[in-house]
């Protein structure tokens, strides 16, 4: 369809009344693309890290997600069991294929059936990591890859996310910076999913209903693992913990 391409770009240039950007203009445009500048970041996203954790939790709860703070990741299996029991859900789990999640003391929960891999029907509950937590709106950022199948975020009815306190940042822009560090400038994985609360719809008489097509429940296990990545320029979520190669 190179004819169409030529036609459209030609029409655009005629409307812009120019053939090409001048060399000077092009330099500006290239520079703008190569060195992305953060725009106006709301004050809410610029608080100190400790306050960001509280904001993250506050926003999640407001979104009808639930949060449990854990002192360390070894407490995850117990917390998962407790959560499933409390919500009266089947004791079955589809786990993201990551070493750190695989290595947790699952033996301590003999009643819990744990399988790894992508989500399939009728998986009821998934457990994944996250790339980052963004406090300004209680948003979880997932970056797809071998250790982070996309389907785990959407197909099961219940989604449990292990989020380390060090992964929580204030504003979206900080997460972009970390993504660039992890994947390279101008490169993203197949899917970056920003998840802000459980699935919802207002399509019937504008009344909010949860669990339209994605997860009905979103439960975040917030691991309090010390000061944040945001405070330490050398530590990316990948290096710190999480979505390693």
């Amino acid at each position: 369809m190179s004819e169409a391409r030529k036609h459209i770009l030609g029409a655009v240039r005629r409307s812009l009344k120019r053939e090409q950007p001048t060399a000077e203009e092009r330099r500006h445009l290239e520079a703008r693309l190569a060195d992305p500048q953060a725009g106006l970041i709301p004050a809410r996203g610029r608080r100190p890290h400790g306050e960001q954790l509280d904001l993250m939790e506050e926003m999640l709860v407001e979104l009808s997600a639930t949060v449990a703070r854990l002192p360390g990741e070894e407490a995850v299996p117990q917390a998962v069991s407790d959560y499933l029991k409390g919500e009266n859900l089947p004791p079955k789990l589809r786990l993201a294929p990551r070493d750190d999640l695989r290595g947790l003391p699952w033996d301590s929960q003999p009643l819990l059936e744990v399988a790894e891999g992508i989500a399939e029907e009728p998986d009821s509950t998934s457990l994944t990591g996250a790339f980052a937590g963004i406090a300004e709106t209680g948003t979880l950022m997932m970056a797809s890859g071998p250790e982070a199948p996309i389907t785990l975020n959407f197909l099961p009815e219940n989604h449990i996310v292990v989020l380390r306190a060090s992964q929580v940042v204030g504003a979206y822009e900080e997460a972009w910076t970390q993504l660039r560090r992890r994947f390279g400038a101008g490169v993203l994985p197949r899917a970056v999913n920003m998840i802000t609360g459980p699935s919802r719809t207002g399509d019937i008489e504008q009344t909010i209903q949860l669990g339209a097509h994605g997860p009905r429940r979103l439960h975040v296990l917030l691991i309090e693992d010390g000061p944040g990545a945001a405070a330490d320029e050398t530590q990316t979520p990948a290096a710190g913990n999480g979505q390693a190669d």
């Binding site: 926003m59 979104l63 294929p97 891999g117 992508i118 709106t137 209680g138 948003t139 797809s144 890859g145 071998p146 199948p149 996309i150 389907t151 490169v187 993203l188 994985p189 197949r190 899917a191 970056v192 999913n193 920003m194 998840i195 802000t196 609360g197 459980p198 699935s199 919802r200 207002g202 994605g214």
Partner: peptide
Amino acid sequence: ATGQEFSAYTTFSTGPRRPEDPDG
């Protein structure tokens, strides 16, 4: 649009699944 702080799913899609990806 809806008065939400952020919509539930904001999804950034870049290319097809990579050779090493398990889904997509």
